[in-house]
Each structure stands twice: as structure tokens, then as C-alpha cells.
Design a protein around this nucleic acid. Structure first.
Length: 755
DNA sequence: CTTCACACCCACACACCAT
DNA sequence: CATGGTGTGTGGGTGTGAA
């Protein structure tokens, strides 16, 4: 049996702050919601014993070591699909003629048969809210005709044994639970609340609050699928990922108020509740914990609802629930945006009709406007602060910050400046100290953290590593200054992670259009909210990083006309001949993003192509070896070829991971010599637009290199880099950014360059 | 149609770890 | 002890379907 508690417990213990003792019991002690304590505690206890897995019983495919990771994209996608299928098509009666289960199109007549208003004997389990399809009816007592119609299939016999001998523990309080319980039983399995060996946990979704020790579980969709398709599907799709954990040092604060305060609060709640023009809230007592029902085995034996259809069901938030949410948020203001907080409070019986997601959304969209004040809480411990005199909790009007602070443009700017400053003073040209230009000592970030404590040292360091250095210090400073000069609000650096890039690209190929929209929305600033202005006729310098990159990416995928909406045409034009500004602003996938990594371009050393520093091919040797990059150059359809290359660039980061692969792929597709492609690529510093230019130029004119082209580095020009006196010319041609980068790459260091 | 509940997404802030 | 690689889950959303 896998050490079920392992993952979460281990992680908790690992967290530096070492509040390992944080477990789910803690969150349960909500004074206002007393019954919750017991229930949640029980839940947690019960879950501790969880250890059986589906894998045990079905295939052993399940236990892949990556389970702790986020479910990967495809899995999620599939999962989603599965869900929708299950949702859309009634798993109800249906010939299982196609056991393959892919017959989603059967719009199965979801004979809801909902309204059997036999609400009669829904014992103490009754929900206050009338919900269609919720009608109770002891399954056993159910008349067969009905059952036949709703849950059985023609060959029900085989069917009902699919899950024979399995035992499930079903979590959640939403209505879907009922459906699932029902189905599970129909399929021949047992339901238990006592987690134990062989018991398989089921939850509705990943965001469903689950007990602390919840380990491997599956979503309801698994059951839907089995029920519907009459076979056991690939379990991977239905594996649920662990819900997020709270930061190790934080406990959900539910019970530290004084009695006096409690009363006040309760009074508050009541008054609010009464003042609202809403239908009367159900009496809290009426909400009675579903736990109770669940635990009584009969609860499910009774199958208090007949099976209708496993569609998403939702319950309205009641005033009481809203107030409870507000109360909880007030006690835990720092957690108000986290998923884990809501996932956890969703376990409280009062709120258990909703998923964590739902509660979170409810707060964010609706209740947050009403919050007005929160308790003053110690950020380190999440404990409510008491007024030393009155011994009462302190309330504050100002919402505290969140767990993580987004970087603002100003902060980015300050960071760039600080690092630049360091580079100038710390390691100038004279001190030939072998400090690669990408090396910035911790002290710099330490100073930043001291000066701007909104972020930690490591955070500042990370920001530099992953953003500032990728974007380019100079470039950002310039961008920022330009914005200020133009009276625009600069945006922080964004979207520079390679992962982001490749993901985006995937999506891009699906929909460039929506990407464009996204790009325009991107610039966002936390401190000073900015309006989503300026979509039209932005000048180059107005373009946010993200926009530039979007454009760049779009340019890779789509034909030119497609990308130049938004008045950003000139900048996206990425056209030749441009000098400094156009070059640096134009679509350069690899400079703006850290595509360089993906491309294996390491500007700090290995690129350096042809000046002999690293011994890679030179122009002359290449010419000797392969005089012509392609046979029958004249016959090539230039346009098409360029398009092909663009497309291949589009696969970059996903299918294609290195420049070698890229060149190889282009070679295969177009017939152009891979060696030449590689050479051109190097000369272009990996900039796609330059690269395309040189290829295009070659195809049209037969010229092997471009002598005076911004961004294209000839061997002569590379040599000029070594000569200070020649630099001005280079700046003129290539622009400072490009020169510095190139220089850094070839010379190994440069005074004002970060690579 | 609109609104709400809920699922799901994803960039990235912050952290940890091996080297 | 700096440093790159990488994990985690927050923060701020969007997508979807029911009502």
C-alpha cells in the first residue's frame, strides 16, 4: 500500500516554515459552524486510511510516478472531454451496442423523468432546496419500471458486475454525489465512508475539497464513463490531481475570535441577512450536514435520489452561505485569492453544497465588493490580532496584500537599473574579471529586497533571471523611459517563459485571432490599474512585450496580413533594412522570449559561429563544401518556401527543440542545405525575421549573405566587434541591442550587456 | 437572452534542490 | 555559496452549461 499520507505530509514538513502540523483538522474549528468540526475531522480521519487504489483493482497502469505533478495538458483535455461527454449524453439507458464508448454523438434522450415528486420519504436527508431530479426514493423500493427506464440497460446483467467487489468512498456534498453513488451501486460496487484498503476515493473534480490524506482518487467522470460505456476506460484520464495545499506556514483561521466578537458577528450576519431582499435563507440547521447522511450506510442504500443524469448541478448561494464565506475571508484575508483556502472551507458543512472553485468565484465576483473590512491578521502566522486593551480582534478597512505580489513595471525598471548599475560599477571593461555577464551576485538582489521589501531576495533574483535578463536590461529601461516620455503607462515584463511560449504557440495555431485579443489585454499592472486603452495606432514603443511577442509569433504562423491589425502594422512588419529601433522592436522570437534556450543558442558562448572562436564553420569552408545551398535555386517558389519555414518555426519549442532540429526540418521540407541554414541562423542570432530575410534574399538573388542588413552578422562585422573604434558603425547598422548581444556572445563580455 | 455556479486554464512569484 | 533547473500553487482570469 502506498504510503498514502506521504505526499502531502512530506511536502508540508518540507516547507521551510515548518508548520508541519497544519492538517485539516485545524481548518475545521470554525466557531460559528460547530458541527463542521466533527464532520471535517471525521472526514480527515477517514481519509487517512485511504490506501487502496483503482489501480490495484483494475489495471496497474495507474501508478505512474508523475502523479504528483499537475495533470498534464493532454490528460486534462481528455478529462474534460470525458466530462463533457458524460455530461452531455445521458449515461442512462442506452444500448451499449458500442462498448467502445466513443459514440458520443448519441444525443441520448436524457429522459430526465425528473419529476417524480415523490419527495415524500426523504427522511432527515432532505435538502432545503427543491431541486429537480432530487427526489428521494429508496432505490430498493423503486419500482422496476422506473429503474429500467432510468438506470438499467438492456444487458444490465453484465453491466452491473463491472465494478463488482470494488469499494468506493465518495467525497463531496454536491448533488452529483447522489448520482454517482447510485451509479456505483448499480455497477455492483460498494460505497463506504470508512476509507480502508482497497477503497477508491471519488471526487467530483480536482477542486473538490478532499481530506488531507487523500491520495489517488478519480473523478466522478470515471463512474459516468463506466456507466455509460459499459466498460472500464483508461484510468489515467480520470485521475484527479491533488488539490493545492496551503502554504506550510498558514493555517486557516476559523476560531480565534473572542466570544464577544462572535456575538457581534453573528448579530451582524443576521442584520445583513435580514436586510437583504432575498428569499429567506434556509435555516442553517436545515442544512444539516450531509455527512450524516453519507455516513449512514443507508443514506446510499436509500440512494436518496433516483438517478437522473450526471450533469453539473449547482446550488444557489444562500445568504447564510455568503455570510459564512465573508466571515471566513475576513479571518483569513491573506488567503482570499488562493484556491486551497476555498477548497478547504468547502469542506465545512455549511458550505459543502459548493465546490471550492465555486466559493472562490463567488467571493471574487460578488462578495468581494461587500467585504469592507477584515480582521487584522499576522501575516506570518495568520493569527488574528487582538487589541491589547480590549482584547478584541482588530478590524481593518484595508485589505492586506496577497500571498504573492505581482511585479510592477516600476519594479522591473528598478531592477534593471540596479543591475545595470552593478554592471557598470561592479565589473567594468577594465576589470577583466571573469564574470560572465549573466552573473549578478546575490548582493544586488539582497539590496533590492531591502529597498523594496515587496519581494524577497530570491524573488528579485528570479525576476532577473527569468525576465529582466531575457528581455534585456537596456531594452526594458528604454521601453520604460519611452513610455514615461510618451505619457503612457509601461507594462511589466511578461510572457517570457519558454513554457509559456510553446504553449501559446500551440494555441496560436488554433486561433491567432483570440491570441491577438489576449495580447492586447496583457499589460496589466497591479498597483496602478491601467485601462485597456491603446489598441489603435500604437507606436512601436507602445507595444507591450507581450504584444510584440504575440505579433512575432503570429508572424511565424500566419501570413503577414493576418498579423497586422491593431495598427501595429509597422512594427509587426519586421521588415528588412530597418536599423536600430525597427530591429529591436520587430518580431524577434528568440530575444524577447527565452526561445534561445529552446534553440540551444547560448549567447554566452556557443553561438559565435564564424569568427573562429569556437571553431564552427566559416563561410569559406561552407562555400567550399557546399557551393550552393540548394539546387535549382531559381525554380524554387520563394513564397511557398518562406511560408514553410515559418510554419516550421511555429513548431518550435514543441516538436522542434534545437536549432539543429529546426534546420534539419527545414532542409527536409525545402531542400535547402541544413549546413547553410544553420550558418544563416547563427548569423541572424536566431532572429526569425532576419533568418527569413536571408533565406529569401538568397532564393531570390543567390547571395549567400547579406552585407548590410540589420541583424545579420557577417564575419567581417563580427571581427569589427573586437575593435572598439568600429563599434559606432555597427551600432548604426545593427542597433545597440543587437551589437551588445553579439558582442557578448563573441567576446565573452561587454560592459553593458546582459545576455 | 442573462446570470450564476462551477470547471478549468496558465503565467509566473516564490521556492527548493542538486551541483 | 552561487547558480541553473524545476516544482508548486497563486492570482487572475476564461469556458461552459444549467437555470
Amino acid at each position: 500500500m502506498p504510503k498514502k499520507s506521504s505526499s502531502s505530509a512530506k511536502r508540508k514538513a518540507k516547507t521551510s516554515s515548518g508548520q508541519e502540523e497544519q492538517d485539516d483538522h485545524s481548518l475545521v474549528s470554525l466557531t460559528t459552524l460547530d458541527n463542521s468540526q466533527v464532520a471535517a475531522a471525521v472526514l480527515a480521519e477517514v481519509a487517512k486510511e485511504a490506501s487502496g487504489t483503482l489501480g490495484d483493482m483494475m489495471e496497474d497502469e495507474k501508478r505512474d510516478n508523475s502523479k504528483r505533478n499537475h495533470v498534464n495538458k493532454t490528460a486534462q483535455g481528455k478529462n474534460k472531454k470525458g466530462k463533457h461527454r458524460a455530461t452531455k449524453d445521458s449515461p442512462a439507458p442506452e444500448k451499449n451496442e458500442d462498448a467502445s464508448g466513443v459514440n458520443k454523438e448519441e444525443k441520448e434522450i436524457k429522459q430526465e423523468t425528473k419529476e417524480e415528486v415523490s419527495n415524500t420519504e426523504k427522511d432527515e436527508n432532505s435538502e432545503e432546496e427543491k431541486r429537480p431530479g432530487n427526489e428521494k426514493k429508496p432505490e430498493v423500493a423503486k419500482d422496476n419500471s422506473n429503474e429500467q427506464e432510468l438506470i438499467t440497460r438492456p444487458n444490465n446483467a453484465n453491466f452491473s458486475h463491472l465494478l463488482d467487489g470494488k469499494t468506493f468512498a465518495i467525497y463531496g456534498k454536491t448533488d452529483a454525489v447522489k448520482d454517482v453513488k447510485m451509479m456505483v451501486e448499480i455497477l455492483g460496487a460498494k460505497i463506504t465512508n470508512e476509507m480502508g484498503p482497497g477503497v477508491i476515493p471519488l471526487v467530483r473534480s480536482a477542486s473538490t475539497a478532499v481530506p488531507a490524506e487523500f491520495d489517488d482518487g478519480y473523478t466522478f467522470d470515471l463512474i459516468y464513463s463506466i456507466h455509460k460505456n459499459g466498460k472500464i476506460p483508461s484510468l489515467e484520464e480520470f485521475k484527479v490531481k491533488r488539490p493545492p495545499n496551503l502554504p506550510g506556514n498558514v493555517k486557516i483561521n476559523t476560531s480565534d475570535l473572542t466570544d464577544a466578537e462572535k456575538k457581534d458577528r453573528e448579530a451582524d450576519i443576521k442584520s445583513v441577512a435580514e436586510s437583504l431582499p432575498l428569499p429567506p435563507a434556509p435555516h442553517p440547521a436545515a442544512k444539516r450536514t450531509r455527512k450524516a447522511s453519507a455516513k449512514s450506510k443507508s443514506g446510499l442504500a436509500n440512494a436518496d435520489s433516483e438517478y437522473t443524469t450526471p450533469k453539473k448541478r449547482s446550488s444557489k448561494f444562500t445568504v447564510t452561505e455568503d455570510e459564512a464565506i465573508l466571515d471566513l475571508v475576513r479571518r483569513n484575508p491573506y488567503l482570499r485569492s488562493t484556491h486551497s483556502f476555498y477548497a478547504q472551507i468547502a469542506q465545512i458543512p455549511l458550505l459543502s453544497n459548493h465546490t471550492g472553485n465555486s466559493i472562490r468565484f463567488r467571493f471574487r465576483k460578488i462578495l468581494s465588493k461587500r467585504i469592507e473590512w477584515v480582521y487584522k491578521v499576522d501575516p506570518a502566522t495568520n493569527e488574528i490580532q487582538l487589541d491589547p486593551e480590549t482584547n478584541e480582534p482588530i478590524k481593518v478597512k484595508h485589505l492586506p496584500g496577497l500571498l504573492k505580489s505581482q511585479y510592477t513595471a516600476e519594479e522591473d525598471y528598478n531592477l534593471c537599473k540596479a543591475v545595470q548599475d552593478f554592471k557598470e560599477n561592479g565589473s567594468s571593461l577594465s576589470t577583466r574579471k571573469r564574470r560572465s555577464e549573466s552573473t549578478v551576485p546575490e548582493i544586488v538582489f539582497k539590496q533590492m529586497a531591502e529597498k523594496y521589501p515587496r519581494h524577497s531576495i530570491m524573488s528579485w533574483r528570479d525576476r532577473y533571471r527569468k525576465f529582466a535578463s531575457v528581455y534585456g536590461l537596456e531594452k526594458y529601461v528604454k521601453y520604460y523611459d519611452d513610455c514615461i516620455a510618451a505619457g503612457k503607462k509601461p507594462a511589466p515584463m511578461r510572457n517570457l517563459s519558454s513554457r509559456a511560449q510553446s504553449r501559446k504557440r500551440e494555441r496560436d495555431s488554433l486561433s491567432v485571432k483570440s491570441e491577438d485579443q489576449n495580447a492586447n489585454k496583457k499589460p496589466k499592472i497591479e498597483d496602478s490599474k491601467r485601462e485597456g486603452e491603446s489598441n489603435v495606432s500604437v507606436s512601436v514603443s507602445d507595444l507591450g512585450v507581450a504584444q510584440i511577442q504575440e505579433l512575432a509569433r503570429a508572424s511565424v504562423q500566419k501570413s503577414a496580413d493576418e498579423e497586422m491589425k491593431d495598427g501595429a502594422s509597422e512594427s509587426s512588419k519586421k521588415q528588412e533594412t530597418a536599423a536600430d529601433s525597427a530591429l529591436s522592436q520587430s518580431a524577434n522570437l528568440f530575444e524577447d522570449a527565452d526561445e534561445m534556450k529552446a534553440l540551444n543558442i547560448d549567447f554566452t558562448g556557443s553561438l559565435s559561429s564564424h569568427n573562429g572562436l569556437t571553431g564552427t564553420i566559416t563561410l569559406s569552408s561552407l562555400e567550399k563544401a557546399e557551393p550552393e545551398p540548394i539546387e535549382d535555386r531559381e525554380k524554387v517558389n520563394v513564397e511557398e518556401t518562406i511560408k514553410d519555414i515559418e510554419d516550421l518555426f511555429g513548431d518550435f519549442g514543441s516538436d522542434i527543440r534545437s536549432s539543429e532540429q529546426l534546420c534539419e526540418a527545414i532542409h527536409k521540407k525545402t531542400g535547402i542545405s541544413a549546413a547553410w541554414l544553420s550558418y544563416w541562423f547563427d548569423c541572424s542570432c536566431g532572429m526569425i525575421n532576419v533568418f527569413l530575410d536571408v533565406v529569401q534574399n538568397y532564393l531570390k538573388t543567390g547571395e549567400l549573405i547579406m552585407k548590410n542588413h540589420a541583424g545579420f552578422w557577417t564575419e567581417d562585422q563580427d571581427r569589427m566587434l573586437l575593435d572598439e573604434s568600429k563599434l559606432p558603425d555597427l551600432y548604426k547598422l545593427h542597433g545597440t541591442e543587437s551589437v551588445n548581444k553579439r558582442r557578448a556572445a563573441l567576446v565573452g563580455q561587454s560592459s553593458n550587456v546582459v545576455s
